[in-house]
């Protein structure tokens, strides 16, 4: 069945259309023609002058935001795939396993001035988020591990517990912060939001997500083997332990970087890989790149809804992804005999 190339090309087309549509909508009504004149002007060098106001809205506000939505949606989706393969269960996801809230805690420690800026400010925040996420997932994984197997019940419970712990840490630093003015900003960012994205914010998430995508595509075969179980993988000569550690670090790195820029947006990594598996099956060489595309599409639309669903008011996009994601999660949880494919 599954025609991966057709599906892949189809998804690329859908993604291009999605970005094209989302940059045409916003709180300000702009003619479609004007929107594409701006894009044509910047991308293809077409046309002479464009309206500078429209130019700023489309090129400086909407496009970087749509591209960040692509990076975050795609990045979280492939990390969802990585986590699901790591624990061999489709319920795993960076948000549920506590990576996102750990990253939030690390980032807010830094944001509120409890951690010193190590290198530059732009790099310190992702690093703090990465370390927070890594600590969280390492603890969850160690608790859930039962010999060579990972207990799913323990994994989910440990994830919930770590999420709660990390959220309390975040609340603690938020409340004890000497600067009450920052509270609102922190709150909005904890719920996950792409508001106010600038071009300068894109390179670091792009680098991290690109690294994650590249690594996972290169590791497609070992990842496939992991799904068979650790012993068969080991007997095939795979360095299973190193692979698992690598996946955990990679998940913390990508999630941390994305959380540092957009806050904790949950459940993208749960919904998207599941839907993509229905389309193209389990093999990672298809699943990973297509999950990236589908995640990008999903978050673009979710962000468009967050921007436009209420008049003159913007919602944190994390609320919407949770509203879609939690029922989905519960249905998956109810289906006992779920397995990949």
């Amino acid at each position: 069945m599954k025609r991966p190339w057709t599906t892949g090309l189809g998804l690329i087309g859908v993604l291009a259309c999605t970005v094209g549509v989302t940059v045409a909508f916003g709180s300000t009504a702009i003619e479609w023609g004007d929107v594409y004149r701006v894009l044509g002007h910047h991308l293809l060098g077409l046309g002479g002058s464009v309206n500078p106001v429209v130019d700023r809205i489309v090129w400086q506000l909407r496009l970087p935001r749509a591209l960040l939505a692509c990076l975050v949606g795609g990045g979280l989706s492939i990390i969802g795939v990585a986590m699901q393969t790591l624990v061999r269960n489709p319920l795993a996801e960076p948000y549920i396993l506590g990576i996102s809230s750990g990253a939030s805690a690390g980032a807010s420690f830094f944001y509120l001035g409890f951690l010193p800026p190590l290198i530059s400010k732009t790099l310190s925040m992702p690093i703090a988020a990465f370390l927070g996420g890594l600590a969280s997932i390492a603890i969850v994984y160690l608790v859930a591990r039962d010999g060579p197997r990972v207990s799913v019940a323990r994994l989910l419970l440990a994830g919930v517990a770590m999420s709660a712990l990390m959220a309390s840490l975040t609340s603690f630093v938020t409340f004890s912060s000497p600067e009450p003015d920052k509270l609102r900003a922190v709150l909005f960012w904890l719920l996950g939001s792409l508001s106010g994205t600038r071009w300068e914010q894109l390179p670091i998430p792009a680098l991290a997500t690109g690294l994650g995508l590249g690594t996972m595509v290169l590791l497609a075969r070992p990842l496939d083997a992991m799904l068979m179980g650790e012993e068969p993988a080991q007997s095939l000569g795979m360095p299973v332990e190193a692979l698992k550690r690598g996946l955990i670090v990679l998940a913390a790195l990508v999630t941390g970087t994305l959380v540092a820029v957009s806050g904790a947006i949950g459940f993208v990594g749960l919904i998207v890989p599941h839907a993509v598996r229905l389309l193209v099956g389990v093999p990672h060489r298809r699943l990973v790149p297509l999950s990236f595309l589908a995640g990008a599409i999903f978050l673009c639309w979710a962000d468009l809804a967050a921007r436009t669903i209420l008049p003159a008011q913007e919602l944190p996009v994390g609320i919407l992804t949770a509203l879609c994601g939690v029922p989905f999660f519960l249905v998956l949880l109810r289906r006992r005999n779920y397995h990949f494919g």
């Binding site: 106001v53 700023r56 506000l61 106010g196 003159a312 913007e314």
Partner: peptide, 10 residues
């Protein structure tokens, strides 16, 4: 809250 940058730019 959050600032609607788009409407301001417009």
């Amino acid at each position: 809250l959050p600032v609607d940058f788009e409407a301001i730019t417009a």
